[in-house]
């Protein structure tokens, strides 16, 4: 599959700018997504190939603009929704409740 993820050899992505030191996770939500990935994987809800494929199926513009762990969240949501483990309605309702709580 030669989707947008297949970046090898592409021009125009700019400098790398590696920082001398950086944290493992930049934001707390990145930590949670990382753990959710392993948690749901460990629960047998998808395998690594399905997970990669869910990222590779992303809208190309969204892929390039999205941050790394955002790709992961997108993939976990996509797979769990497709497999009926969670529903859109459950996620939306919970988000609304969490929002209301603030």
């Amino acid at each position: 599959m030669n989707g947008i993820h297949d970046l090898g050899g592409m021009h125009g992505h700019g400098p790398i700018n590696p920082p001398p030191v950086e944290p493992v996770f930049k934001h707390d939500w990145e930590r949670r997504i990382f753990a959710l990935f392993i948690g749901a994987f460990g629960g047998g809800h998808y395998n690594v190939d399905e997970f990669r494929h869910a990222i590779e199926r992303m809208d190309p513009a969204h892929y390039l603009l999205g941050s790394y762990y955002e790709h992961w969240l997108h993939a976990i949501e996509t797979l769990l929704l497709e497999k009926g483990v969670v529903t859109r309605e459950e996620l939306d309702r919970t988000m609304a409740t969490l929002k209301g709580g603030h």
Binding site: W29, R32, L36, G39, H45, L73, E77, E90, L91, L98
Partner: peptide, 27 residues
């Protein structure tokens, strides 16, 4: 995004599909 992550984690925890303590340990 923070809210989406919290919502997903909370739905999965409600269903008993993840153990939040175990996730903290993994992190």
């Amino acid at each position: 995004i923070e809210l989406r992550v919290k919502a997903l984690e909370s739905v999965l925890a409600e269903k008993g599909l993840i153990d939040t303590g175990a996730l903290d340990e993994l992190i």
